[in-house]
Simulated scan of single mutants.
Amino acid sequence: MTDSPTFFDQMKRSFTDVPLEGDNRIPTAEFLEASESLVKLFDLLGSAAFQVVESDMNGNITKMKKRLGEDPEHSKTLQGMVLEEVKEGKKKTGTQALLWLSRGLQFTAAAMRETLEHPEKEMDVTFTDGYKRTLIKYHSMFVRPVFKLAMRACPYRKDFFAKLGADQEKVLSQLREWLDALEKIVKIIMDFYESGNYGKGL
Rank of each mutant, 00 (worst) to 15 (best):
T2F: 04
D3C: 04
D3N: 06
D3H: 07
Q10D: 09
Q10A: 09
K12P: 05
R13S: 13
R13C: 08
S14N: 10
T16S: 11
L20W: 02
E21M: 11
N24S: 06
R25D: 12
R25Y: 08
I26P: 05
I26D: 07
I26Y: 06
P27D: 06
P27N: 09
P27M: 12
A29K: 15
A29Y: 05
E30P: 07
E30T: 15
L32W: 12
E33N: 14
A34Y: 12
S37Q: 14
L38K: 10
V39I: 15
F42A: 12
F42H: 13
D43F: 08
L44N: 05
L44V: 04
L44W: 02
L44G: 09
L45K: 02
F50T: 11
F50G: 09
F50D: 08
V52F: 14
V52H: 07
V52Y: 10
D56T: 13
M57C: 15
N58G: 01
K63A: 15
K65G: 15
K65C: 13
R67Y: 11
L68K: 10
G69K: 07
E70W: 07
D71P: 06
D71T: 11
P72M: 15
E73P: 00
E73C: 00
E73V: 14
S75P: 07
K76V: 12
Q79R: 08
G80D: 13
G80H: 12
G80C: 11
M81R: 06
E84A: 13
E88S: 06
K90G: 14
K92M: 07
T93Q: 07
A97N: 14
L98N: 09
L98H: 08
L99S: 05
L101P: 15
R103S: 10
G104N: 14
L105Y: 05
Q106T: 09
F107V: 09
F107A: 13
F107C: 11
F107G: 10
T108G: 08
A109P: 08
A110N: 10
R113P: 03
H118T: 11
K121M: 12
E122S: 04
E122C: 02
M123I: 09
D124T: 00
R133T: 06
T134M: 06
K137T: 02
H139A: 09
M141N: 07
M141Q: 06
F142V: 15
F142P: 00
R144K: 14
F147K: 02
F147M: 13
F147L: 13
F147R: 01
K148S: 11
L149W: 06
A150I: 13
M151H: 09
R152D: 08
A153E: 08
A153N: 07
C154G: 03
P155S: 01
Y156K: 11
R157D: 00
R157P: 01
F160K: 00
K163P: 00
G165K: 08
K170Y: 01
V171A: 01
V171T: 03
L172P: 02
Q174G: 04
L175T: 10
R176Y: 05
L179V: 07
A181Q: 04
L182G: 06
I185N: 03
I188V: 14
M190G: 01
M190A: 03
M190V: 03
D191Q: 01
F192D: 03
E194M: 00
S195E: 06
Y198K: 02
Y198Q: 02
Y198P: 00
Y198V: 02
K200W: 03
G201K: 04
